[in-house]
Design a binder for these strands. Structure first.
Length: 596
RNA sequence: GGCCCGGUAGCUCAGAGGAUAGAGCAGCUGCCUUCUAAGCAGUUGGUCGUGGGUUCGAUUCCCGCCCGGGCUACCA
C-alpha cells in the first residue's frame, strides 16, 4: 500500500480490472533528475500481469492517473509514467502526517518476531581494534534497526575468555609483569593485557628463530608447527592444561587478568553506546554440545569413524568432525552447544550472528547441522557476514601491532571534531566542545563504517576516512543542527507551525516538493533495510534526504519567506525533516548535537 | 584443485533486467552585508575486468576466461 492516495487508488483500479494483478505491483519511484514529474511508475514491471504491451499499459495507467484529483499531470515516456502531483496532495500524504510517516516503518504486528543477535565476541587477550569496531557497529545498528521496525530484539555477546591465546598473555605477564596492574601503571586493563600478548609473541619469535637455527631441517615448518618446540610454547600449553585442571594459581591469574580486560571493554562499549542484554563466557560454555553429539549419534545424524572421531556428512560442504577421536570438543561442538543454550534462554524466532566472512563455511555447516538435528528454527539462522578492514599499508595484525586501536581511534575522531567545533565557535566552553566532539566524531566513524555494504572488504585510510565533509555522518548531523537552529528562532518569535495550522498547499517549489517526496520514502527504506538485514540503504537515504534539505535551505528561505503562511509551512516541513533525520541516525545508533 | 566473495570515474564506494550508469573525495569555476559555507551551484573524468549467450532491452541473469581476497583442520 503506497503512502500516496493516488497510487493506492491506481493499484486498486488495476487490480479490479485485471484478475492476476499482484497486490503490491504499483511501486512509485522518485522521478529521475531532469525529467518533468515528482514520481514515476514503471509499467514495464507489471504490464505482463495485464497481458498488455508495456506502452499500452503505460497509456492506460496514465489515463487512470490523469483522472485522479491529486494529479496535475502524467506524461508517458516509453513505458514510464511521470506524474506531477498537486502540492496539497503531495504534502498531505507526506510531511503533513509526520507520525504516520514515521510509523510507516513499522511492520504489521503479525510479522514482528523475537530476534536474538550476537556480535562483538572479543578475545580477552588484547584490546579491540578497528575490525572489532566494524563488527560492533554493524551489530548494534542492525539490532537498533530491527527494533525500529517492531521486532523484539535481544543483544548478546559471547566473550572468548579461554584457550591457548589467553594463556599467552597470562604467561608473559607471569614472567615479566613484575606485579604491575592497571591501577599502578594507569594503563587501561585491556591494553595492559594486550601489551603482554605482544610481548609473548616477541619472545616467541626470538625462540622460533633460535629453534630454526639449531634445526635447519625444520625450515619449511611454519610457526604453528614449531610452537611446542619452543620453551615458551610448551609453557603456554602447560598453562592451558593447568587452567583446565583448575590449578588455583593459574585460575587466580586468569580471573585477575580477565577482570582487567572486562573493565577495559566496558569502557569501550559504553563509549560506543553498546548495551548487551547478556554476555556469555566461553569458559562457561565450551563444554556444552557434547550431549547433543551423543543424541545425534544415536539418531543417525552423526557417524562414528574408525578412529573414534564423530563426524557429520554435509554433502557438498564435506565431512565435518564434531567430536575428536579423544572425545574432546572442537569449535563446532561448542557452537552447537552455545546455540542450543541461547535458544533455551531466549526462545528466539530468529538468530543472527555478526561474524567476519572468513567463517562463512563454518556457519553454513552449523546451520546445516541444526537442520539435520531437526530444529524448526534452523531455517531462521542468519550469518551477517562482513569483510575485513584493510589499511593502506595492508592487513591489520594484532600480533604484529599493525592495528588501529579502537580507543585511540575514538579519541582521535572526538578530538578532531571538537577542534573543528572550536574553530567555528571559539567562545564555546570546553566541556561543551568535548561533548559535541564526542557526538560528531563517533558519529562520523560509525556512519563511515556503515556506509559500506557489509560484505565488502573495506579500506580504511586514516587521512581520507577521518572527514567531516561530503558523504559523512556530520553532513547529516549538520542538516539537523541547521533545522534545530531555525526551530529555536521560530520558538523565540513564537511562531506556531503545528501541522494543522499550516497551509501545506503553499509548498509548490521544486526543492520543497523534492524534499517532501524524499521524506515520504522513509518508511519503505527502513523496511527494506530491515528485510535485507543491511543498514547501508538507510545510510544512503539519510545522505539523500540531508542533501535535499540543504538544497531547499539554499533556495527557500524559511524564517524570512515572503509571507507568514509560507514561513509556517516551510518551518513545518523542515521540522518534519529533522525528525526523520534524527530518527534515522538514532536507528544507526548515532546521536545529534543541538549546535554544530 | 574445489567452494564463496569481489573487479564500475584518478581514489573510496553506491546501483541493479529498463529511460541519458551515480555519490563523495581529488582537480577546475563560481557563491558568506541573506535562517549555521561541516553548506550550495557548475565543470572535467567511465569501452561497468574480459569473451560468448539469453532478452524487445544486460553493467545487472547464465557459461567460459583473467585478476584480487577468503575458506577448504581432530585451531578458535
Amino acid at each position: 500500500m503506497s503512502l500516496f492516495e493516488v497510487f493506492s487508488a491506481l493499484q486498486q483500479q488495476l487490480a479490479g480490472r485485471y484478475p492476476d494483478f499482484p497486490a503490491d505491483a504499483v511501486q512509485p519511484e522518485r522521478c529521475p533528475a531532469g525529467m518533468t514529474g515528482d514520481l514515476t511508475v514503471n509499467c514495464f514491471r507489471f504490464a505482463r500481469f495485464a497481458k498488455l504491451a508495456p506502452d499500452r499499459m503505460a497509456a492506460e495507467t496514465a489515463e487512470m492517473l490523469r483522472a485522479h484529483p491529486d494529479v496535475e499531470d502524467a506524461q508517458v515516456i516509453k513505458a514510464f509514467v511521470n506524474v506531477t502531483l498537486r502540492p496539497a496532495a503531495l504534502l498531505r500524504d507526506t510531511a503533513a502526517q509526520l507520525e504516520r510517516l514515521l510509523n510507516a516503518g513499522l511492520l504489521p504486528v503479525a510479522s514482528r518476531r523475537k530476534v536474538l543477535i550476537e556480535y562483538s565476541a572479543p578475545n580477552t587477550n588484547k584490546p579491540q581494534h578497528l575490525g572489532h569496531v566494524r563488527n560492533n557497529v554493524l551489530g548494534m545498528s542492525l539490532a537498533a534497526l530491527l527494533k525500529r521496525v517492531g521486532h523484539d530484539v535481544s543483544e548478546i555477546n559471547l566473550v572468548n575468555d579461554r584457550g591457548i591465546h589467553i594463556c599467552k598473555s597470562m604467561l608473559a605477564y607471569a614472567r615479566y609483569g613484575k606485579g604491575e596492574t592497571p591501577a599502578s601503571t594507569g594503563i587501561k586493563g585491556d591494553h595492559l593485557v594486550g601489551n603482554y600478548y605482544v610481548l609473548f609473541n616477541k619472545v616467541l619469535g626470538e625462540e622460533l628463530s633460535a629453534v630454526r637455527g639449531t634445526h635447519p631441517e625444520w625450515a619449511d615448518r611454519d610457526d604453528e608447527a614449531l610452537f611446542e618446540e619452543t620453551e615458551l610454547g610448551r609453557a603456554a600449553r602447560q598453562m592451558l592444561r593447568d587452567w583446565e585442571a583448575g590449578v588455583p594459581e593459574v585460575c587466580a591469574l586468569w580471573r585477575k587478568m580477565n577482570d582487567w580486560v572486562f573493565e577495559g571493554f566496558d569502557q569501550t562499549y559504553r563509549r560506543i553506546g553498546i548495551h548487551f542484554d547478556h554476555t556469555y563466557l566461553e569458559s562457561e560454555t565450551y563444554l556444552l554440545g557434547k550431549d547433543v553429539i551423543a543424541a545425534g549419534l544415536s539418531a543417525g545424524v552423526f557417524q562414528k569413524r574408525d578412529d573414534g572421531a564423530v563426524t557429520v556428512d554435509l554433502g557438498k560442504m564435506g565431512i565435518k568432525v564434531v567430536l575428536r577421536s579423544d572425545g574432546t570438543s572442537v569449535y563446532m561442538t561448542q557452537d552447537i552447544g552455545t546455540t542450543l543454550r541461547k535458544v533455551e534462554d531466549y526462545t528466539p524466532e530468529e538468530l543472527i550472528w555478526v561474524v567476519g566472512d572468513e567463517q562463512n563455511l563454518h556457519f553454513q555447516m552449523l546451520f546445516a547441522i541444526m537442520k539435520k538435528l531437526g530444529y524448526a528454527w534452523a531455517d531462521c539462522c542468519f550469518h551477517l557476514s562482513y569483510g575485513m578492514v584493510n589499511l593502506p599499508t595492508g592487513k591489520m595484525k594484532s600480533r604484529e601491532g599493525t592495528v588501529v586501536d579502537a580507543d585511540d581511534l575514538f579519541d582521535r575522531m572526538a578530538e578532531l571534531a571538537s577542534a573543528a567545533c572550536a574553530e567555528r565557535a571559539p567562545e564555546t566552553p570546553a566541556a561543551e566542545l568535548a561533548a559535541r566532539g564526542e557526538i560528531i566524531g563517533l558519529g562520523a566513524l560509525k556512519f563511515m563504517l556503515l556506509k559500506f555494504n557489509p560484505r565488502t572488504t573495506m579500506l580504511f585510510d586514516p587521512e581520507a576516512s577521518i572527514r567531516f565533509e561530503g558523504d559523512t555522518g556530520p553532513y547529516v548531523q549538520y542538516a539537523c543542527a541547521r533545522i534545530a537552529s531555525i526551530e529555536r528562532k521560530a520558538a523565540e518569535q513564537k511562531i506556531d507551525y503545528a501541522p494543522d495550522k499550516v497551509d501545506w498547499s503553499l509548498l509548490g517549489e521544486a526543492t520543497e516538493k523534492k524534499l517532501a517526496i524524499e521524506a515520504g520514502f522513509y518508511g519503505a527504506v527502513l523496511q527494506l533495510a530491515a528485510e535485507r538485514r543491511d543498514v547501508s540503504g538507510l545510510v544512503e537515504y539519510l545522505l539523500n534526504l540531508a542533501k535535499a534539505f540543504n538544497q531547499f535551505y539554499r533556495e527557500c528561505p524559511v524564517l524570512v519567506a515572503p509571507s507568514p503562511e509560507l514561513v509556517r509551512a516551510r518551518l513545518a516541513l523542515a521540522a518534519a525533516v529533522r525528525r526523520i533525520l534524527a530518527d534515522g541516525l538514532a536507528t544507526l545508533t548515532i546521536s545529534v548535537p543541538e549546535v554544530m
